[in-house]
Amino acid sequence: MSFIRTLEGDISPQSLGFTYSHEHIVCRPAFWAERGESDLLLDDPEKSQRDVEDFKACGGSAIVDATAVDYGRDVEAVRRIGQETGIHIVGTAGFNKSFLWDARIKEELKPIIGSYATYAEWIDRASINELTAFVVREVEEGLEGTPFKAGQVKFGTGYNRITPLEEKTLRAVARAHHETKAPVHSHTEVGTMALEQLELLRSEGVDLNFVSLGHMDRNPDPYLHEQIARTGVYLSFDGIGKIKYAPESTRIALILELVRKGYENQILISGDTARKTYYKHYDHGLGLEYIKAKWLPRFVDEANRSGFDGEKLAEKFFVHNPAACFSFKK
């Protein structure tokens, strides 16, 4: 039996609909707050909701909120946005990456995880089994003590390296996956260390067909992408709209190259919209409507010109592939 776990409860994969596979809706990351980086604080739920409403108005159905515990998520606010807009929202258990872990843990979390001062202290002092138990609780009982359960488990690694604490969280997340059957998602910094992550997951006995890797378009290397795709994982191209990293022509070419090689069933698309300046209703950015309303028509046109069925590919990337990727298979 397969199902997808949203903040509102479990649904059938067929009910998910048009999906953004990696976004952030409301979050106040302590690391950035402590440094006065206001752009990285999505701290106004009303403004976030207006962007989610725009996404729904252009045909969107579901959003995977990839905000883990160390990135300052607001579970109640995000769940309320999903409830009021009717958008399915998938929450995330697990961890992000080590440089964020110098931040102080918010007081509300300490009754749940213990009286550690920082995330680094918690992860360093806790055993892998203790970290695994925390992730399992977030999937099976609820995020941060709420009744709203996570629909995927996440870990992350840094730029061109995997620190000992990152490996520790990776192994905890892998073991939580075995216990819960939740799909696994990873943060790759600038698209690096993907193959190394997969080797560690293999060492934990994880079936890589249950794994998605984020930020693949940040490392625009077709050879590397093919090596990754051969393992069976999903590749998330989630930097759509971020021209400062690469033009859209580069992303589309990378995606179509994977399609040419037969990997169209392993591609996910999203925007990783995690700054005020990316949101329309915070600071006049492209907003959550951009991919569906503006990028996708261009992609379909370019795919058609390259001899593919652009509409069929769009259906795969935004409907069929997310429904398969984010399913629990028990």
Rank of each mutant, 00 (worst) to 15 (best):
Q14C: 14
F18N: 03
H22Y: 13
E23L: 08
I25L: 10
I25K: 06
V26H: 01
P29A: 13
W32R: 04
A33N: 09
E37I: 13
D39W: 11
D39L: 13
E46D: 15
D51V: 12
D54W: 01
A57F: 13
G59C: 08
S61G: 15
A62P: 02
I63L: 07
V64H: 00
D74W: 07
R80C: 06
G82M: 00
N96I: 05
K97W: 12
S98H: 11
F99R: 03
R104N: 10
I105W: 03
L109T: 03
I112R: 12
I113W: 08
Y116V: 09
E121T: 01
W122V: 01
I123Y: 04
D124K: 13
A126K: 15
S127W: 09
N129M: 15
N129A: 15
V136S: 10
R137N: 15
E138H: 13
E138G: 08
Q152T: 11
V153G: 00
V153N: 01
T157L: 12
Y159Q: 10
A172C: 08
A172E: 00
A174L: 01
R175Y: 02
A176E: 03
A182N: 00
A182H: 00
P183Y: 00
V184M: 01
S186H: 04
H187W: 04
G191N: 03
G191A: 06
T192E: 05
L195I: 13
L201N: 00
S203R: 10
G205L: 06
D207F: 09
P220L: 14
H225L: 14
I228C: 10
R230E: 15
F237E: 01
G241Q: 05
S249C: 09
T250E: 09
R251P: 04
I255Q: 00
L256H: 03
G262F: 11
E264I: 14
N265M: 14
L268V: 11
S270K: 04
T273R: 05
K276S: 01
T277K: 13
T277N: 13
Y278N: 10
Y279I: 02
H284I: 13
W295A: 14
L296N: 03
F299C: 09
D309W: 08
V319Q: 05
P322R: 13
P322I: 09
A324W: 07
K329D: 14
